[in-house]
Amino acid sequence: MKKSWMKIAIGVWIAAVLVVGISMPIGHIPGLGAKARIIYFHVPMSWLAVLAFFMSMWYGIMYLRRKDMKHDIKSASAAELGFAFSILATLTGSIWARFSWGSFWNWDPRETSIFVLLLIYGAYFSLRSAIEVEERRATLSAVYSIVAFVTVPFFVFIMPRLMTGLHPGEGSPAPILNANGKMYMEASMRYVFYASLLGFTFLYIWLFNLRSKVGILSYNNHSEIE
């Protein structure tokens, strides 16, 4: 009860970002126009998918050090949320790509990366469901998430060798983000983007706390019965 202000605040904040993001004029952006508004929703979702992947690995390391089941439950909760957000990012991006690039899927470097991320999450959950002993499941899934996390940076180096990017910011016309990481966004647009990033991150923290609390409660309950 006492933390209900947090979820109300997140709800109001994200609703405000949604209204402002859709209604606020964004000026003229060459090649994108109003389609650039996806940046308010799609980019935060992808950011959360990656953040959750990192947190899942982080709690995996914590489990291997402390052998506390709470860390394993948190690792799994982070992975579940990350999986949900990467599906959302893939779907929104895919629909957007249909209208911007002409087809739902183009094997652009970032599409390939999120595809690999989905594969890793899928493999992680298959591994978890294939092991019944809790401690063993916790150890092995932690180990797997570390190995997976270590190999992912290779895509950053190998992708540009194999294909050219289509995402705004890669390739010659760079209307919003360019290769040097410098942003060409109007100030007002940038504020909404940061506000959305902040709102989504807090949404993630709230969901993560809720999910891991439920997980820990049901684990305690279940071990008491046994």
Partner: peptide
């Protein structure tokens, strides 16, 4: 250490081996 060993192997290996 897992139960469904045969099917799980390519599933777990593929994302790790993809960069290679």
């Amino acid at each position: 250490k897992a139960n469904s060993k045969g099917t799980l192997y390519p599933v777990l290996s593929f994302p790790i081996l993809l960069p290679l």
